[in-house]
Design a protein around this nucleic acid. Sequence first.
DNA 1: GCGAAATATTTTACTGCGGAAATATTAGCT
DNA 2: AGCTAATATTTCCGCAGTAAAATATTTCGC
Lengths: 164, 164
Amino acid sequence: MRRVAKRLPAMPVTEALLSRVIILLGRALSAHIDEVISPYELTDVEFRTLLSVYSAPDGVAGPSDLCASLAHSPATMTRIGDALVARGLITRVLSDQDRRRMDIKITPQGEELVQEVLPRMFSYTRELYGEFSDAEKTRLLGYLKKLFGQLMLDNPPAGKGEQA
Amino acid sequence: MRRVAKRLPAMPVTEALLSRVIILLGRALSAHIDEVISPYELTDVEFRTLLSVYSAPDGVAGPSDLCASLAHSPATMTRIGDALVARGLITRVLSDQDRRRMDIKITPQGEELVQEVLPRMFSYTRELYGEFSDAEKTRLLGYLKKLFGQLMLDNPPAGKGEQA
DNA sequence: GCGAAATATTTTACTGCGGAAATATTAGCT
DNA sequence: AGCTAATATTTCCGCAGTAAAATATTTCGC
């Protein structure tokens, strides 16, 4: 990147570097999540979907709810559901009130898996920010949120999921 | 996420939130890059490859160099090269010194494209950090680098490209 | 109540990105 | 010369995701 800067002096070096590092960090963090859940034969989106069901207000959610909060198409959500049902992690039955809908619930095995996986992520996450003081973490989060807000101004203000 | 925290009090909320926001930011930034280059009918990896060639030390690079610095497989790099050649943005000829290698050079049209696209990215990038003072940007970058360093300790220290 | 429009989900067919393995060619070493 | 390693390409395949059509059900206006 320095080499690019040499050829285009108008480049905002620090800012471009910031964006680049954020992108790389995002990828690395995603990759780590994949790694933690890979032994369970789940993809990241499957796991995140399971988490959404796990934490759903009444323990029930419909595919459309999950589509909205996870930003996937209905077709994708169907296949994710198939996978989770096949693994016995969720159940999917027709809703009594509205028989167009499906009621998705987590199974005991699903809860068990979540409660087994999340602590592993937590310990790694804690380790990751071990060198940060509480004040630093707070300040970093503030910066990131500010950036996020700026990014959502012009860009599609389409809700990126669960609103932090 | 708050709902998850309610069910698992052991969760490091701030830290998890930090990681989540970084991932989302990374995706949003990537999406914006895609958006800027989409009128040129180039994918992000094609554009990044073009940039690598643009800024290559002697204006020449081989597929294997690009593979290493952009973390792609040889097969992928061949196809990226095909696309860039088809658009007349690079040339790819057998090296004289080593006839296993290809010498990839950027064409005038390629340089033109880079010099047309980058300024657009720059102006957006500047805007993005408009609310940040120099000191804040520096501090943010410091935090992110610290995090990056921590992340590269345990994780595959496999070089993530051009070393910032 | 009954038909039309709206809603929720699934199915089908397709795209795009990326990689692994096999192949061909060449370089370097002894 | 002959063997091994390096370089790039081709072929084939898989994964993840979507759009649009198909299906089933509910809601609303009259």
